[in-house]
Amino acid sequence: MEFMPNFRLHRPSQLTDAIAAKAEAESLYLAGGTDMLVNVRRGIEQPKHLVDLSAVAELKRRRDDADGLTLGSGLTLAEIAADDVIAARYPAVAQAARAVAGPTHQAYGTLGGNLCLDTRCLFYNQSEWWRKSNDYCLKERGDICHVAPGGKRCFAAFSGDVAPALIVYDAEVTLTGPDGTRRIPLEKLYRNDGMAHLTLKPGEILAAVHLPATHAGDPSSYEKARIRGSIDFPLAGVAVRLKLAADGTVADLAVALTAVNPYPHRITGTDAYKGKRLDTALLDALRDQVRKQAKPMRTTTVAPWYRRRVVGAIARRLTAELAGFTE
């Protein structure tokens, strides 16, 4: 038998019942479980109650109307990857869903679980005996951070693939909790703190993602660097959305990163490219701008300097490809 802590499982079919069940002490939400159950098995999470969201039909809804596309958080990554409307209007989102883990994870891993994914670190995503032999760390049970031993901060990296692809389209999320429902930009779901990177209030569920019609159809792409091409988390991931004007100059450029900060980071200052024609010098400037804003720390087996270089290189290449620019 595999080790499992003792917990009680709740399987509500209504959102309100899920929120009520979550009010129990030491209770956690479970969607596909492709990250949560790994952490439970490793003793990183030791819930007394798990609230399984997989039977809540409301979370699997998908609506396409004049405002844009609304995706329930319970849709699987495979469903997102295979959705023709997403592929046509928001291509980076479909590409990012297809880049998560492997096909089996995509088949039952969900959009909501991907966006609410815990942050990751070499010293945290390890077995119980591994962490114990290292006296744990700040993020869980321990006193020091092995990445930056002097400080009191955690730099674990947010490593979900889909968030940056949604952010370049200005996606919003609906959060439903004990105090009602609110809608915020997806970017605002996150904060720069590896120990508490989500701004969800206690009991809140990420119910749906809204892709606005505003940028629908703009060309975009997503690419990540990873160790094994088949299943690994990103060492660095980049989404780019580029709209060109009729004369070939930049009408709109948005770039967002994953796995190089504790939150998915939108590159600031891309408005400076508006009205300009992308050439070698401008693409080099964009690459340097991306490198500067990425803050990878020693949270993976691969050195931070490499992740900073590769994140800039991917951003530059994707932008050049979207612009149809060849050197």
Binding site: L30, G33, D52, H105, A107
Partner: peptide
Amino acid sequence: LVDGIARHACLTLAAV
């Protein structure tokens, strides 16, 4: 296979 779709039995609770 769960309802015909590949799934990890090690990351699935039986009760689900």
